[in-house]
Design a protein around this nucleic acid. Structure first.
Lengths: 384, 384
DNA sequence: TGCGTCTCCGTAAACGATACCGATAGGTTT
DNA sequence: AAACCTATCGGTATCGTTTACGGAGACGCA
């Protein structure tokens, strides 16, 4: 019979059932319940991280003292401080940032939601974000929506569960409902939009010269003598798509060119759509003599396809695009583009987010326009 | 005079100095010390996250019950469980994954260290990693070393401080010392190497067909009738550089071609070095008639430069490279490459890491070879 | 000697979630 | 009716770190 842990006798101990696989007993004299089990001792694990408790034990001081020493806080003698710091170095102590963040209610981590890492533009943005985040001692958690609304929502949920201190978002092209985002914003989660922004929420936004760039590109085409300029736009819901189209229209108007519906199409950025659009244009009684593709990849694809069709670029057909990836220089003929500076976009977005985080004023409005640059190459030089 | 919080009188209270900006008192009757300050109440903050405590308070149950309900644990009545789950949904409760991880000693986060996000290969790998991690409910933290050893170390330190559950590493080209890595590995941190692997530590490794791919590329050149094949390799310390060169040498040997030292150079992947190498080769009494650049960008750069010099590709000079980025197709003439599958590399690396994490057996050896594919394009078709 | 002040350090309470231990109200068996 | 059993809940330690608070001396000055 088992011995009661309270009265240390076994005269009145009775079996009292099973609980979670263990035998349960009750002492009828002191009314105490207890369980018994002969399980093996827990296996001692190898230790990856040293904790302040380890250091405290070795030094024979309290954990508070260790914490004070390692954080250069006052109320500690220089001698103790140095001894502790030396030991910490020897044990290569690394503070558990999660525990620290947990305690402070912050994680020193920001979340980034983008459509796709593999796209050079977003890779550049990420690089800029990382750089700024590193300087500020923040870590970055990246999620891809793959242009799916559901994935975007689930990514945001995940980041939220990780208690990120802030969010940088560029929406998927599917995203048209923003109640989730709005909700979070109103709860006070620091948040900044970039590139694919959302106008329904008053977050700080990083926009690019979509209108201005489109205008400059089309103006350049007109100045080169092109008369019938077509635009291959993206999904009409996308704001960048709208803005770039507006810039296109504005240039046409300013120079008194006819605006022709046949010359304006909205696609999904796919190669198939781009090529089909070119086919359709070529079958018009008056085919365009220049094409402005708002996505640089489409521009490149059209160049390749036009060459295959025996169309002379830029003589017969001028082509311009958005975004100066390495490709633009390489294609033959090299592509005239309006260069966005993705790295800079990332840096500014991250900087703005940290401003919001540190100011605790999430309602701060800001609308930054990142300047781009017109880079003229052969694909649009009709006169040369 | 102040009132003693213990004996509730103020007859024996004396001023006892200043401490941390507050006035300090001592009650001479009960010997108790206390401080006084008239600071404003803390500002109540808007609450972003609901906790189980909030739910417990509203429901009038204990936090333990809430935890049981939300985790579908036994020992709870269906009625209570459903009521709690319903409330949690209404408050859109999100468990604090950091707190959970903190308690469990795991973070459900893995760290990735790569040289550069902007390189398409690594972007592809990341994409693969993310996909697998998402499936497994893990989050990913990404760091760039920018090819700097110090940055790499500091990144690893940071990830370690974040207590990641595992590490995926592709080393910088500067990295030649691995004691840090070895140390962590021996402490039992799950770790997997990919691409730029490290042979000094017995981690699982994902390698690619560097040797095989190089062999196939050079073999293809030889079969096309090229006789004097040069190689533009990377830093000699880099394993992929060595492996690809070995493949090159093996092909030359197999087909009985002369191995000429002038035809083999080690660079730093920079454009300047690539172009200078071509210049140097062209000044040889017998310039090479084909070039194998182990970095696809160098291959593209050489094509561009050779065209500018009036060299006919592939008639006069054949060119092949490694890695089938979008560029390879676009450049004129299109580039023959050995395609690595970055996404697959990422998926396999992540999968292997999770195996190690879940098996708790960090010493598990594994060496996976991800198959590539020879893609023949015009840049090497001398016979056509 | 007695009071005031300062240095240095330990104690303990958070932070959110989990898991173990125990308690209680019922029901069932012997 | 005593003994036994079970379902369902509460209480609390725990993870690593920070920090408010208080205690024990030491020191200085009248």
């Amino acid at each position: 019979m088992e011995i009661c842990p309270k009265c240390s006798t076994n005269h009145f101990v009775i079996r009292a059932g099973m609980i979670r696989g263990k035998v349960r007993y009750q002492c009828k004299s002191c009314q105490v319940h207890f369980t018994q089990e002969q399980s093996a001792k827990p296996i001692p694990q190898k230790q990856i991280h040293t904790t302040i408790k380890d250091i405290a034990n070795i030094m024979g001081v309290s954990i508070a003292t260790v914490s004070r020493a390692l954080n250069n806080k006052p109320d500690i003698s220089p001698k103790t401080r140095e001894a502790i710091q030396k030991l910490a170095l020897e044990l290569d102590y690394n503070p558990n940032l999660f525990a620290k963040g947990f305690q402070r209610g912050e994680t020193k981590t920001i979340g980034v939601v983008i459509p796709n890492i593999k796209r050079p533009f977003f890779a550049g943005v990420l690089s800029g974000i990382q750089e700024v985040a590193n300087e500020r001692g923040y870590r970055v958690m990246i999620c891809q929506s793959n242009e799916s609304y559901e994935a975007e929502i689930s990514n945001i949920q995940g980041l939220l569960a990780s208690h990120v201190d802030g969010l940088l978002i560029s929406h998927s092209k599917e995203t048209t409902r923003f109640n989730q985002i709005k909700n979070l914003f109103e709860k006070g989660l620091p948040m900044v939009h970039f590139d694919r922004i959302c106008t329904e929420v008053d977050t700080p936004k990083i926009r690019q010269e979509d209108f201005e760039g489109a205008f400059q590109l089309v103006e350049h085409l007109i100045q080169q003598g092109y008369q019938r300029i077509a635009i291959l736009a993206g999904p009409p819901e996308l704001l960048i798509s709208q803005k770039r189209k507006e810039g296109y229209l504005h240039a046409l108007e300013k120079y008194g060119l006819v605006i022709q519906k046949d010359y304006m199409v909205h696609g999904d950025f796919s190669k198939e759509f781009a090529l089909a659009s070119l086919d359709k244009w070529l079958q018009l009684p008056e085919p365009p003599d220049a094409i402005f593709a708002i996505h640089y990849l489409n521009a490149v694809e059209i160049i390749q396809y036009a060459k295959k069709l025996g169309i002379a670029i830029p003589k017969q057909l001028g082509i311009v695009g958005f975004g100066d990836e390495y490709l633009a220089e390489i294609v033959d003929p090299p592509l005239t583009v309006f260069h966005l500076f993705p790295q800079k976009v990332g840096e500014i977005a991250a900087g703005l987010l940290f401003d919001v985080i540190s100011s605790k004023d999430s309602t701060r409005q800001a609308d930054v326009l990142v300047q781009g640059q017109l880079i003229i190459r052969k694909s649009s030089l009709k006169k040369a």
